[in-house]
Design a binder for these strands. Structure first.
Length: 459
DNA sequence: TTTTGAGTTGTTCGA
DNA sequence: GTCGAACAACTCAAA
């Protein structure tokens, strides 16, 4: 790359190229905030973030014609539609004798970089993790450029992209929870490294704790902070003896789960729509609209499930432990296809990610790579008691249960009538009765799996 | 090529 | 109350 030449900093808002999955509502909200913040930061250096909506190819052709640009740079993407678009773009630009360079901006390593001894992609997490941590060294973080002044050309406003919800504007809870943008990301990382990292292995499972996890996922998704930056900061702290190594490595392994999801997506482009393990094509999922409605609304009658679903609706986020509980509940207790859940999360999560969301739903359902065995059905009662022991999380998101004593908080249907009355609860009115019985639903899920086995053996 | 050990996150049951 | 075994078998990865 030649230096000293002006840069056009371009964001193409492409909703029209073929095959792209439309962003969900929460993701659009974050994107709008993030772009606005990014534009402000660039303006401070005297530059301009140029925003254009349209197909990537058409927009680039226009920009090149307007500016006489001779080089184009971008960070690589890994979804199948995005790869197809970027491959075509690269071919077109090179045909026009443009310099094209692409980079890895969003992962630690490229999905094809780390392979087994047989040069095949890893399909099991632990050996992948071992291979990555023994070879990966995070590159140094470069300082942001002080001046980014380029040509001032026509640009759309962020507002014109129509990313913010109106009529109704449901984004109040998101607004109160998040600070999209690089500064917010760095702050979250620093807060985490100042203490919580040293108790991460335990506390990451506690949705009732404010700072048990980093909550960096949406920032990572939107490229406001890179995994390499996070890795380097943690590695530095370990070397300096500042962090407990075991806890810090547990944290890094979670970052590598994100990488592993991208390996799975790269080699399985249909990860969000097809069973990774096609045996699951035979599983007799049920189609129960009422059950799905109750699940989405956080009205299942299981407090930890309902708390999670309401946290999601209100803040665009759900604690990871609770994600597993609600996902197990939907796919196993309610026997609804994992895609129903994947779709809902896609629409409502601020960190909705094509790789992590699909891989994690399949993992829970049992159809995914290195998946939970099907007979591992989370018990929403004991999970609640174990990971929200004082009920802080449930009381926060299900305030109608606030006055129940801890002993029956996760099992309101077991409270005697005097206790319920005293807590101001009428089951079936102020809070639902359980929509399924745990033991019955568990057995139904195990039976469904048995039919799958029979069908597979017969085939 | 064959063999061997291992595999994110759990629950239930019975001693 | 605590603890270990059973829950399935299969596929992956490396020796």
């Amino acid at each position: 790359m030649k230096t000293g030449r002006p840069l056009v900093l371009l964001y193409i808002h492409d909703e029209v190229s073929p095959g792209l999955r439309a962003r969900g509502g929460a993701s659009r909200w974050w994107l709008g905030k993030s772009l606005a913040e990014h534009a402000r930061q660039i303006e401070k250096t005297g530059g301009q973030l140029t925003i254009r909506a349209g197909g990537a190819e058409e927009v680039l052709i226009d920009i090149i014609a307007e500016t006489g640009a001779t080089s184009v740079f971008w960070n690589r993407r890994y979804g199948s539609a995005e790869r197809a678009i970027d491959t075509d773009l690269k071919a077109m630009l090179r045909k026009g004798e443009m310099d094209v360079s692409t980079f890895n901006g969003r992962l630690l390593t490229e999905p094809w970089d780390i392979t087994t001894g047989a040069s095949t992609p890893y399909k099991v997490f632990t050996p992948y993790w071992k291979a990555l941590k023994s070879t990966y060294r995070a590159p140094p973080v470069l300082a942001a450029p002080k001046a980014l002044g380029g040509p001032v050309i026509e640009s759309q406003t962020v507002e014109s992209l129509g990313l913010q919800p109106t009529d109704p504007d449901w984004s109040g809870g998101l607004e109160a929870t998040w600070h999209p943008g690089e500064a917010g990301a760095i702050e979250r990382l620093w807060e985490f490294l100042e203490g919580p990292i040293n108790t991460y292995a335990q506390d990451r499972n506690r949705p009732d704790l404010e700072r048990g996890t980093t909550r960096l996922s949406p920032h990572l998704h939107f490229g406001e902070i890179s995994p390499a930056q996070v890795w380097r900061a943690v590695q530095h702290g370990i070397s300096a003896g500042k962090f407990d190594e075991s806890n810090a490595m547990t944290f890094l392994s979670e970052l590598v789960w994100r990488e592993f999801s991208y390996v799975l997506l790269y080699y399985n482009p249909d990860l969000a729509t097809e069973n990774y393990n096609s045996d699951f094509d035979l599983l007799p999922w049920r189609a129960d609209c009422d059950a799905v409605k109750s699940w989405r609304a956080g009205q299942t009658g299981y407090p930890i499930v309902d708390a999670g679903m309401r946290q999601l609706w209100h803040t665009g986020y759900m604690h990871n432990r609770v994600r597993m509980i609600v996902a197990s509940f939907l796919t196993k207790h309610l026997l609804q296809h994992w895609q129903v859940g994947e779709d809902w999360f896609w629409d409502t999560l601020v960190d909705a990610d094509p790789a992590a969301n699909a891989a994690s739903w399949q993992w829970t359902a049992g159809s995914g790579a290195d998946a939970a065995p099907y007979f591992r059905v989370f018990n929403p009662i004991t999970q609640g008691q174990k990971f929200d022991p004082h009920g802080t999380y449930v009381r926060r998101w299900c305030p109608e249960l606030s006055f129940l004593p801890d002993k029956v908080l996760h099992t309101p249907w077991e409270a005697d009538s005097a206790t319920l009355k005293e807590a101001g609860i009428t089951l079936g009115t102020t809070y639902p009765k359980p929509i399924v019985d745990h033991a019955t639903a568990r057995q139904r899920a195990l039976d469904a799996y048995d039919t799958l086995k029979e069908k597979r053996n017969a085939a």
